[in-house]
Design a binder for these strands. Structure first.
Lengths: 232, 232
DNA sequence: ACCTGAACACCGTTCAAGT
DNA sequence: ACCTGAACACCGTTCAAGT
């Protein structure tokens, strides 16, 4: 406090730049405007600084992306820490953890893509995996089966499915009707599925409930893994 | 042939540029040098032309990426067409199709990433999905369950898992030993798994056999889906 | 109709210079 | 020690000009 100069008390004495602050600003920017909007220049601007100043705190942009992933995985670890009340039910605990991770990722839509572009597995990520592996072991899984289970979960362990197309702006009923009509000749199966499933849908948002589909697939995997465990 | 000028018979009369040729060259370039090496300038160079000439045949780079995906999915459809000899066993047929798709994707390592960046589902992709949906239906799955099944397969339907880290250059035994040691204190579970699994490994390439892990997870899903069908 | 050179707006990053 | 302006090499893309 004694080191702080006060040239003008009206000017917000903006906190000094730091790796920490750079990363937090990067996450906020990506959350708000998308990962493509994150450039060294836009990030610097948000921090009230020139682009080149960032290089005093991070080596390069790759390192910023690394750090951003760690911020998100840190949030996941925080969310997971508060959980496991009941013990003994590995499946419920696993489900709870993974859905908590998913809830965090839904707040950072850019994270899955960036995670997949990383080549090294960071320390916070190791911590998260360690906890999942621990759950499998407590649940009576052999080391070998635990290993296969982790691979089988894949990115789903972190709460994201890699969907095949973007469902972010679902079609309206009339659009679907047109599409069903168009595809009926050449692609009868997909056309029929689209027609039937879109009629059944009671979700207002669109005809695919992402959360439902995620949990369906997760339970499929967990049930299957339990069966493999019992067969060993 | 009468339209062809022959200014010099020694000069290879390079085939005229076309959308087709641009896309094929783009796929080759990405296969050989990676997707990051694919720029309008390097692509043009490979075709013996200036970058700006490409714009006579494609609207922009996004459209090139779209077209590259279609080339790959076209290969998958070709590979799948030659298959289903036996009928009646939906699970074997599905397995066969998906593993054929995987074999194609392994020749185009850039494809998964590019596919996930596309927002629209292309016509060749629709054809492929239509065939999978048809298999589920023939296998006695309800439309609703078929829909969930397609979501549960996710990108695995096309033969790729989204792994959590890059396994392309596996560690040697001594590297693993060091890592196991380092993590033993803070991350006991992951350390123990790494130790045990790396000892069991009989694969020379590394301690994770990607093909095995892929088939393990695929069978887990297919078995689970069959169970859900029988329970309906 | 197709190809080209020059140019533009934008990247990440380097470097010498400021304080 | 930290920040900055100018510059560099590289993108995708536009446009007017060539043939």
């Amino acid at each position: 406090m004694s080191t702080a100069q006060q040239p003008d008390p009206k000017i917000e004495p903006r906190p000094p730049l730091s790796r920490e602050r750079v990363l937090r600003a990067a996450v906020e920017l990506a959350d708000e405007r998308g990962i493509d909007s994150l450039t060294m220049r836009t990030l610097a601007q948000r921090l009230g600084v020139e682009a080149m100043s960032l290089y005093n705190h991070v080596a390069n942009k790759e390192q910023i992306l690394d750090g951003m992933v760690d911020v998100v995985v840190g949030e996941i670890n925080d969310a997971v820490r508060g959980l496991d009340a009941q013990s003994g039910d590995w499946k419920a605990a696993m489900r709870q953890r993974i859905l908590a991770a998913r809830a965090v990722l839904l707040r950072h839509r850019w994270a899955p893509g960036v995670m997949q572009s990383r080549t090294e597995i960071s320390v916070p990520m190791q911590r998260y995996y360690d906890s999942l592996i621990g759950l499998f072991r407590e649940g009576g899984f052999s080391m070998d089966l635990t290993h296969h289970a982790m691979h089988a979960l894949g990115s789903r362990a972190l709460g994201f499915t890699q969907e095949l197309y973007d469902d972010s702006q679902p079609m309206g009923p009339e659009e679907i009707a047109v599409l069903v009509q168009q595809m009926a000749g050449e692609y009868p199966n997909i056309s029929a599925m689209l027609r039937e499933v879109s009629h059944d849908a009671d979700t207002a948002l669109g005809w695919c409930d992402d959360q439902f589909e995620f949990e369906f697939a997760l339970d499929l995997l967990l049930d299957g893994l339990e069966k493999r465990r019992d067969a060993e």
